[in-house]
Amino acid sequence: MTVTTQPSGPELADVHAIVEQVWSSFLGDEEPLLPRYADAAEEGTPAFPAEHVWSAAVSVHGGWTGTVTVELSSSVAQSLTRLMLAMEDEPLDDAEVADAVGELVNMIGGNIKSLMPGPSALTLPVVAAGRAAHSSELAEVARFDAMWNGEPVRISVHAPQS
């Protein structure tokens, strides 16, 4: 008997391509996003070297079910908010940063959804100050780590444990 299970997650190369396109479209290509792959010697997840972090997540439900999460250092979050709002020196409030980070995960999550079997629906983004927490029922199925301006950016995809 054949048991069909959902494909666990997207290909890392596709996730990379999507993040790269979102990044270069809205944040310019003067400062490239540099991929950072886990050191072979390093056990498990590489460190996320930032003190202040923003995180945002969208969920996909339907033909494929999972969660797409973006985590970035506060300084990356501020920079991308300024670039998207075309603001230079004016002070930013948290609502503006949350909005921009939410739109970032919406764009990445929506494109990751289209890599997976559909039809599926995308939730509105949930944004938080601090690292993302994941339910124990979800397992990480893809992760893309990068550095931008010397600060960390992480995109991870979680799906139900099969």
Binding site: T81, M84, L85, A86, D99, A100, G102, E103, L124
Partner: peptide, 12 residues
């Protein structure tokens, strides 16, 4: 668009 940042990009 529900994102102010995206509205700002499109408005420009």
């Amino acid at each position: 668009d529900d994102s102010k940042a995206m509205r700002s990009i499109l408005r420009r």
